[in-house]
Design a protein around this nucleic acid. Structure first.
Lengths: 260, 260
DNA sequence: CGCTCACTTGAGTTTTTTCAAGGACCGTGG
DNA sequence: CCACGGTCCTTGAAAAAACTCAAGTGAGCG
């Protein structure tokens, strides 16, 4: 079920754990990652506030000067690691996993291109969860101390960072509602529609996409067992709401799915 | 079960939805709320970074110049209200409630004295949930635009606000883990221990306290029905872990509770 | 003093999990 | 090119957990 990474990276690049102003990404631009400068980055409209001057962009370029590749299955950071930077996913996708002492695991989010990682590390100075690449991925490294300095100078950047963090709070609230009040069926439907919406917002098909995560990871995110996730996929298939073949998903009837 | 508000307000004043540096509050100081100036506020050590100069405090005083009383059951703000300020609970306690179109409700947090409210409003410019007082309460009003201005000047304030927001992200992650992976028994145990810890951090008894929320609100926060909450309380009572009489809770065996 | 609201408890039902088995797909190496 | 091993996915049947419905109790308030 693992398809060519380059194409897949693009397909999946439209989550929204930390809400950032979202624009379509022209296909092809995502994989062009030789330029670590924000001023030349095709994803700038996704990561950054829109109203930056050339002068302000230059300041950003001076700070965000490195990227990092993370192979599928490798960690970008682990819980307990010292916090120094936040990250913007440039290519690929990640999951963040919170681990309890007794071994219980909770996937707290899936992040794709244009989305932020590591905001949980600001408090306490250590990362709070593991960030693991779901496929070969590339992130921009944004040293937080320097970002703070920029935010003291550029009002719109300051506000943007506050908005990013607030968006993450809101996203997590929604996920709490999902976990606290929805049936297994509703959770899976909501999950698929959320993915769909994010893909659409990036200019990809909202109806057909590939999942980079396993049924187990989905279950771990939605608070249910992998078998239950699988049963819900089968149920939606019987009801002609979704056509799923392994990790390939085709949403046939989005309205029907929303009414589940 | 509603006891004299003044005493109760103090008892409950030790949650930690948005983690803020926590110190004991000397009894009596909380209800002395005629002074809306941070420089003279007995809770400053809870709300503010410790290393502020007199000059910096003066700037804060100029901004945080109003408080607001909210009667039990009244809303501090509602979902959809325009966002202008964040709030610090000075006296009393609140719940934040997220409502789905179909009527489903999720309590996303309980906030007590010294804790922040409204950070979810930064993104989008509107509040995202309802904040409802669990008892007669008083909040400090902190206009966010002015707070941002201060943060551009005072580095430690800037970092403090980032930490507050990050703490809220971390708190919500933990709640997702609770909702996603724990049994009803574990959820209630975790809830009680969390309350206990927060009370203790404020100088109140970690072993004995009053709940300001109903079983239904607890259930709504923990993703279960009120009957299930009640059964867990009874179970803990039978097992001599907790002695509960209505809203009065006595934690008899914290270690045992932690091992549930 | 009576009413209402919150809480407790029991019995039966529903949902989800657990355990188990089998099948599909992928990458590897012969 | 094909066989093989591992991982992932699907499905069924039984068990466990939580919910629903229902009844009854107790405490605070007007």
């Amino acid at each position: 079920m693992q398809v060519a990474p380059a194409r897949e990276a693009q397909r999946l690049s439209a989550h929204a754990p930390t809400v950032i102003p979202i624009h379509a990404v022209t296909p092809g631009s995502v994989s062009r990652h030789g330029t670590p400068r924000c001023s030349a980055c095709s994803m700038r409209s996704i990561c950054m506030p829109p109203e930056l001057s050339a002068d302000e962009l230059a300041k950003l370029d001076a700070v965000i000067c490195t990227t990092r590749s993370v192979k599928r299955g490798d960690t970008l950071y682990r819980a307990g690691d010292m916090f120094q930077s936040i990250y913007a996913v440039r290519v690929g996708s990640f999951k963040t996993v919170l681990m309890h002492r007794d071994g219980r695991e909770q996937v707290t989010g899936f992040q794709i291109a244009g989305e932020a990682l590591g905001l949980d590390g600001v408090c306490g100075g250590n990362h709070n969860c593991d960030a693991i690449a779901l496929e070969d991925s590339i992130v921009c490294i944004i040293p937080f101390a320097q970002l703070e300095a920029i935010c003291r100078e550029i009002k719109s950047m300051q506000h943007h960072i506050y908005q990013m963090m607030s968006s993450e709070i809101v996203r997590e609230s929604s996920q709490m509602m999902l976990l606290g009040t929805m049936t297994a069926e509703q959770r899976v439907a909501t999950f698929l529609l959320n993915l769909s919406r994010r893909f659409k917002a990036r200019g990809f098909s909202p109806a057909e996409f590939h999942l980079r995560m396993t049924r187990e990871e989905i279950g771990c995110y939605l608070g249910m067992k992998l078998e239950t996730v699988s049963r819900m996929f089968s149920k939606f298939q019987r009801e002609r709401l979704v056509h799923a073949n392994g990790k390939t998903v085709h949403i046939v009837d989005p309205e029907g799915l929303a009414q589940v």
